[in-house]
Design a protein around this nucleic acid. Structure first.
Lengths: 363, 363
DNA sequence: ATTAGCACTCGAGGCGGTCGAGTGCTAGCA
DNA sequence: TGCTAGCACTCGACCGCCTCGAGTGCTAAT
């Protein structure tokens, strides 16, 4: 049951207006700015019908209409205009990535920062799919006489450096042997496959038990998503710039959600397959008591490997066209970055080439 | 020019009341609850005098008095009652530290979390004095054919693992040699001493240039306090529970300050020598435009080495006795933790032994 | 199907009045 | 000289009332 194109136009007008002004719109205003060929009375009739259908509501009798979450869904799926980044926005993105990028964590932070800066919303970025990474080598490095550092190298990058204590004492030979045995035992496996430490341990001498236990513990913690350090939020304070959080109670609920950022991970992990994800309101009431909001994320990948997600979190009323174009462009930029491990090189600015070379300035 | 003990009692009453209720106090109330031997009229005279002296103000004519920052300073320095932790609070601290503590970062996070939970304020913890750490060894670990991991071990713990790319190719021998030369070149020096890379580099073969440059870059970044990852905030949302930030503009200013947490570092680094630090309002207007607030921090150390600070940030009106007792106790607890590198051992609960075994419950 | 016209609704905001907590001041008392 | 009782005064908080105007729903005409 499709809506008439006139109804769709009206919904688009209401959503557009609300995104920009955060105010209800009246029938007269719709007529003047979007549908001058009709009278306000006709539009009123349509508005009443759309309200009946669940797309619009009025805050109180005798006020204009505002969109429901349903109207937003229709908007982002069908009605929304596609826009491109302005020159200034492109410049901002380049500025963040046109510098030394030595570690994967830096990419994470840069991504979050630039998204937050351009959209003026709170942004979130996190690494995922680490449990799918394939272990390449395991290195055991002597730190002190009784402690070693364990470095696990995967095709996603360095996984984690854990330390283990070796009561019997550490020698260089011990480390070399331990590295060899560990690599032999774990190499070639995915992180998620490591569930049977005993089997593995039985295959090697007992003297490496401590190290193996530590490795398994680290891997398991990744496989079970207990690691919270790899989620980054930027611009939490920006949430307060949104008029919907002018109410202190709502602002507080939102900030508490952001404070417990690890709780966001399961929400973000929904719809893993989509390259672009838009969760609106009731959709993400996975977490009960979660304040009304929308989350827009995009998957991003380096060298073709999907390494994480980044996006924004904000009120349902957000500038979806802008957010989506920003996420899209940043995804492309990141995908062209050289391998994060590779160290010191300067990254060339990535050109955003499309059919139209000149990005339109919206407005 | 000391104040009369009666004046001091009145200041204490005003501050106490304001800390608990965040409301002005009237002369009658002071009489009833703190100085029943006097009449309210006498107290009014004293209040007027104290207002003249800059310790008190009234929000408007015909309202009670509230303390100025000056009154708070007097309060924390002289008047404040000392209290001890309640059983519940002790239990909370133990719960956080009575678990595996494998890395220094975990201590940092746990400290921040427990402080925030007990005080119900936003807490801050950060590592400092890294530039004073003495480099023990430098390890170069082969990751791929063209990339190595550099691990710098100091007496404060592992400093940083950076990666460097080696265009000429990496072999195990190369790494072993590089480790030996790097340790030779940097070992025994403080992080802050590494300022002349060229001199150092000239002493070794050119093939290690890439590695040495990376090491120097890492060390310099620490020496110049460019590293921001080692400051942790917990409970940012709790700032909104304080009535002084019920005003949205103030709340926003505060949250923006917390968002840019690296900007807090210079503020925290003042008065480095003090074991306990209380910054109130004008004191920390080092950062101009910084919202009115108070910061209370304590230095903490592991194995006698001062490794950082932790504390709270909140409105000037905060429960100083509670905050100070919490920071004091946590400092003692951390100091008894085993060396962070040492890995896997379970930490025994640390008992808080004092003359009085039973901590008083403060009302 | 659309539209002009009109009565109706309802929140925003200004105004005035009451209430009461708390003060400053003055005069009197020890 | 220091303290206190008494009293007039101040001022924000709160309440109810009113007006204003934007915007609607409905009806009748085209």
């Amino acid at each position: 049951m499709g809506l008439s194109s006139r109804k769709e136009k009206i919904i688009e007008a209401v959503v557009d207006n609300y995104i920009n002004k955060c105010e209800p719109i009246s029938s007269t205003e719709i007529r003047e700015r979007h549908l001058p060929s009709l009278s306000s009375a006709t539009i009123r009739n349509e508005l009443a019908a759309l309200e009946e259908m669940g797309y619009l509501v009025q805050p109180h009798t005798s006020s204009g209409r505002i969109p429901t979450a349903e109207a937003y869904r229709l908007y982002v799926e069908k009605l929304m205009p596609r826009r491109k980044l302005t020159r200034a926005e492109l410049k901002t993105v380049k500025r963040y990535f046109n510098r030394k990028v030595t570690e994967i964590d830096d990419i994470l932070k840069n991504t979050a920062k630039v998204i937050s800066e351009i959209t003026n919303l709170t942004s979130v970025a996190y690494l995922q799919n680490i449990e799918e990474a394939v272990i390449e080598t395991v290195k055991i490095v002597k730190l002190t006489d009784t402690a070693v550092l364990i470095v696990i190298v995967t095709d996603h990058g360095i996984l984690k450096d854990a330390t283990a204590s070796i009561p019997s004492g550490v020698t260089e030979e011990y480390c070399a042997d331990a590295s060899r045995f560990s690599t032999e035992a774990f190499g070639g496996h995915r992180v998620s496959e490591i569930y049977k430490p005993k089997k593995l341990i039985n295959r090697v001498r007992r003297e490496y038990e401590q190290i193996f236990n530590t490795i398994v513990r680290v891997l398991k913690s990744y496989a079970h998503e207990e690691i919270v350090s790899d989620i980054v939020l930027e611009g939490s304070a920006k949430i307060l710039e949104q008029p919907e959080y002018a109410n202190l109670a709502k602002a507080k609920a939102m900030l508490e959600l952001l404070d417990a950022k690890e709780e966001l991970i399961p929400v973000l992990q929904n719809n893993d397959d989509m390259s672009l994800n838009i969760l609106i309101s009731k959709d993400n009431e996975i977490k009960e008591g979660m304040p009304e909001c929308a989350i827009v994320t995009a998957n991003y990948s380096v060298n073709g490997i999907n390494i994480g997600k980044a996006g924004v979190i904000g009120p349902i009323r957000m500038d979806y066209p802008k957010v989506i174009s920003v996420l899209d462009y940043i995804g492309k930029t990141i995908n062209r970055l050289p391998e994060p491990q590779s160290g010191d090189g300067n990254i060339e600015a990535v050109e955003y080439t499309q059919n139209e070379p000149d990005p339109e300035n919206s407005e």
